[in-house]
Amino acid sequence: MTLSAEPRPSVGRTVHYVSHGTPVRSDGSQQFPSACRAAVVTEVDADDPGRVGLAVQNPTGQFFHPLQAGGSVYSDAETRLGGTWHWPERV
């Protein structure tokens, strides 16, 4: 995704992280559905500004997704799939 229309992420900026949620059960229910969570950008990939490291705030605790070790998170403003980030909606 191109970030030309969006601001470039930078360390300390607040974004939304889309949680994966739990798998859907055979009866169609889901214990924890995918949801937007508050997150703070902790790192930005110099070669791909859409790829960032995040500190995610969840009701049950904090989770960290560093750039190293495959924990980075990619921008996805269009489909907002689980495991991606996007800018908060303007209200």
Rank of each mutant, 00 (worst) to 15 (best):
V11M: 03
V11L: 07
T14N: 03
V15S: 00
S19R: 09
T22M: 06
P23E: 13
P23R: 12
P23M: 08
R25A: 15
G28I: 10
S29W: 06
Q31W: 10
Q31G: 05
Q31L: 15
Q31A: 13
F32M: 05
P33Q: 06
S34Q: 15
R37L: 13
A38E: 01
A39T: 02
V40T: 15
V41I: 15
V41C: 04
T42V: 11
E43G: 03
E43V: 04
D45Y: 01
A46M: 05
A46L: 10
D47N: 11
D47Y: 04
D47G: 12
D47A: 12
D48P: 03
P49D: 00
G50E: 05
V52C: 06
V52G: 02
G53Y: 05
A55Q: 12
P59I: 05
T60H: 10
T60D: 15
G61Q: 07
Q62F: 14
F64A: 11
H65R: 14
P66V: 04
P66H: 05
P66K: 08
L67G: 02
Q68M: 07
G70F: 07
Y74M: 12
S75V: 10
D76G: 04
D76N: 15
L81K: 05
L81D: 00
G82D: 09
G83E: 00
G83N: 08
